[in-house]
């Protein structure tokens, strides 16, 4: 073997590496504008919000930078009152905050579970072949397409205790003996929010699950039919396992959304202790009390709580977000 042969081989590999490096570099160059955009619209506000939570920023100091660094006082603070009494203050020892956390978690679990169930039903129906399927598929998306403000107002009137059509219908078929104040009463306000949220978001779940259904190869069903396996067994042994990745991803999307629910609660209910959520409390602190410090502490905790939930979910559900296993 002559030295020139070795040199050629090395040069060849060198060229290959160079090519590879160039491609990586090119890829980065294409990505840079996107990364800058993300940094501007996501990373920077997030950083600002977290840093505000360690200051005493208020509506009067937020724009002129006169706020002071106060460490973790917004989260937890030991305070000695003028009469010598010791009081713990801050978001972490605030009963209202934990009530809001519980409301949010409760709402998220129930709404996402119901939406997944109904979404799966709707997707299975839409996956069958029948006349006018295109039209039904489009029609089912309408609730999702209506802005939440509009649907909340619409449902607010439908659920109204004096003039609402829901009470009217239930009264006339004898389901209830007197009208229910759906959104006002503490017992039913959360149920009203759940009804509207499930109505609005089921189409979204159905759409994601339908996409998953259409990925399942037809020949698997044919094989099952040739073997004479009944429909229920086919659903649990073929459809559901193959659909699992799509459902898991859809649930993550919905859970992220549900944990930061604000608009429906704010528009539909009196925002009393029965329905108030983490986002509503944070909004109230910032917008109504002008306390950017404590409001940002709440936003930061909301961010942490969502992160923990999603990590747990991915870990326990073995969700393959990167798509490596397929």
């Amino acid at each position: 073997m002559s030295t020139s042969d070795v040199n050629t081989a090395q040069r060849g590999r060198g060229r290959e590496l160079n090519l590879q490096q160039q491609r990586v570099r090119a890829a980065y160059m294409f990505l840079v504008p996107m990364l800058i955009m993300l940094a501007l619209v996501a990373a920077w506000p997030l950083f600002r919000s977290i840093s505000f939570s360690f200051t005493d920023a208020s509506a009067n100091t937020i724009f002129n930078g006169q706020s002071d660094w106060i460490g973790f006082d917004n989260y937890i603070e030991r305070r000695v009152r003028s009469n010598g009494e010791v009081r713990w203050r801050g978001v972490l020892v605030d009963g209202d905050w934990w009530n809001a956390v519980w409301n949010t978690v409760r709402f998220s679990i129930v709404s996402v579970a119901l939406e997944t169930f109904f979404g799966l039903m709707v997707a299975l129906v839409l996956n069958m072949e029948f006349k006018g399927r295109g039209l039904v598929r489009a029609a089912i998306l309408i609730p999702w397409a209506i802005p939440t403000v509009v649907s909340a107002r619409m449902w607010g009137w439908m659920l109204n205790d004096q003039f609402g059509i829901i009470n009217h219908m239930m009264l006339s078929i004898g389901l209830i003996s007197e009208p229910i104040a759906w959104t006002a009463s503490a017992d039913t306000a959360m149920i009203a929010v759940l009804i509207v949220d499930v109505w609005k978001t089921t189409p979204f779940m159905a759409l994601l699950i339908l996409a998953g259904l259409q990925m399942i190869p037809r020949d698997m069903y044919e094989a099952a039919r040739l073997d004479g396996i009944n429909a229920v067994k086919v659903f649990f042994k073929v459809t559901l396992p193959l659909l699992r990745p799509a459902i898991m991803v859809a649930v993550i999307f919905r859970a992220l959304d549900a944990l930061r629910i604000f608009d429906l609660i704010y528009l539909l209910t009196p925002q009393s202790d029965a329905t108030v959520t983490m986002s509503v409390l944070s909004y109230r602190e910032i917008q109504q009390f002008g306390d950017y410090g404590e409001g940002s502490a709440m936003s930061t905790l909301l961010f942490v709580i969502i992160t923990v939930f999603v990590l747990l979910y991915i870990k326990l559900g073995k969700v393959d977000l990167a798509g490596e296993k397929s």
Partner: peptide, 21 residues
């Protein structure tokens, strides 16, 4: 008072009143 009063502002109260209820 209707139980819905727990969600009434001025205009909702006037709605019930002005319809004679």
């Amino acid at each position: 008072s209707p139980e819905g009063v727990l969600a009434y502002q001025e205009e909702e109260a006037r709605g019930v009143w002005q319809t004679g209820n």
